[in-house]
Design a protein around this nucleic acid. Sequence first.
DNA 1: ACTTTTATAACAGGTACCCC
DNA 2: GGGGTACCTGTTATAAAAGT
Length: 590
Amino acid sequence: MTSSASPQLWKGDGGCFVCLERHANESQSCGKSFVSKQALEGHRKRTGCEPWKLPSDRAPSKYRGMGPEAARQLKPVSDRAAVSKYRTTLEGERAVHRARHIAKYRLMACSAVPSPPMPKVPAYVRPPISWLLADAEVFPWELKEKFDRGEIVLSHATWSLRFHPDKVQQRRSGEHLRRFVEHFTGSADGLDPEQAKACYATELFAPLNDERFKLGQSAQKAGGMLWRAWLSVECALIDDYSEYLVEFEDYLAKVKQATEGVERARESRKELTVQQYTKHVTRLFQGFKRQQDFNNLEWIRDADGIIEYFQDTYPEKLSMQATGITPLLVVCKKQFSNDKRLYERYYERYTAVRKLMDELKPPPQYLTEREASNWKTLDQINERRVELQRHVNRKILHKKPEELTIEDKIVLIRHLILSLYTYSPALRNDFSECPIIRFEDIGSAEARELMSGSGNYMLEYEKGRFRLVLKDFKTVKHHRETSIDMPQRSCNVIAESLQVFPRKYLLSRMRSPDQPMSRNYLTKFCSTGLFKDAAVGSCLLRKICVSNAMKDAPSLRERDELAQQMLHSASIAQRVYEKHYMPDGSRIKF
DNA sequence: ACTTTTATAACAGGTACCCC
DNA sequence: GGGGTACCTGTTATAAAAGT
């Protein structure tokens, strides 16, 4: 990392940065340590080290060298990912969203934890009377009664001699003040020491002093009645305190409610996720307990047993172990929210498994064996499309719809799919379950229903031109609903295919044109049909597409544009889709 | 030809940490 | 304080296998 001229200059761990430089006029290396890298840099600058700047692994900003307008263009619309600071709340540290200029986020930040106002702690935190009375627990409602019945006897020494502030002031009983303060600051919600002293001197004794000790009178002489008066004040204070306890309970309940509200306000998990989670949990139960159905989730508390079960059942398949645990984490959070240890047990295992998985991963930008065996170059893909196109043009397009065989339809759809995925950046399987709205049907009730619904559709917005409207796709939360105008070539293929194979969906089933291909079937259809010798699905097509685009080191702007079109982020594209090497380490031949 | 189940990968949001 | 990247997390896809 560092050259021989500048050896290791700091230790990263423990936040310790040590200067190992030998400064001018010094016989040995410096050895001064700093808590931050910046501080060390400052030191190096002051002592004239060259260069004073320490090397950094940090990648340059993607905005570097750009004009403000260009930077604004590149900047993602959503600013939610970033966090400006953390604020301490009852629930621990919470992130405050950045982008304060956007009103929505400002509001989100304000309500990140909608903490209700905390009740004011009464001056009297704990009933000192019990403390005064030989540390006995005494309840306010029984105090007066007991006192009247003579069960409580207050000796004069109990209070005035031992605890009177005057005595304390005279240092005859400094220990009592210390104990008093200790008593009142002992609890988490207690007073701080200064407050406690003030309380001792003023709030507790001053009002009593007025009644108990008339000026110039001695305590002993005042006696009887005034003791009762004092008791009343004590009881009132104790009542205040009990009231406070109730309020505090109420407050805690409100905090809990608010937190739950925030939880609920989260965008609900997709139906699919819930389904998958349910399946996982059910299957786990059946395998783990060897019974069909469960009517409660108590069995999930057996974390050790379940973890062991996973380990035994999927010794080689770490991802199965991890995905098995995920829904349990969710269940624990919801169902056993007060059993933190249970959650942590699962969580610990989960992270351990993930770590193992990461270690087994091939390096990024390398193809896996399987990917390599299914890999097609862009030329091969284009060739295949041309081949299919010839077949379609020569043998299918002249036919009448009723003459079309199943095989014809399959070829037609294969060609359509390859066109959709190659004439424009390859999307995911979002072309499945995508109804077509023909230009002449735009006003119809059915069309209007589709367009106002929550699903994707392909709209023929003018004769022979198609637009894909995407409302439901993997990254919709980030990219928002979006629409893509199909390139002219794709439009032609769509229009031609519709003439000979009239159907409701862009990709309909062969035997029932009014039914869409499911996502699964599309996957299967691609991987088994597009090429005879290789399973090329949408995911691999995306990798081929990105890798080809990246092979000539495009600009950041171009990277970002492509990522936008493919509905993922540039960093994901780089990490996941961009491949340069075969599994054996040689360069991919594009 | 297509669906369902099982297995695995992709992806954005949140957080940690860094730098100015 | 504010802007950035890296990394972690857990949700939501696709791929493969099995079933109808």
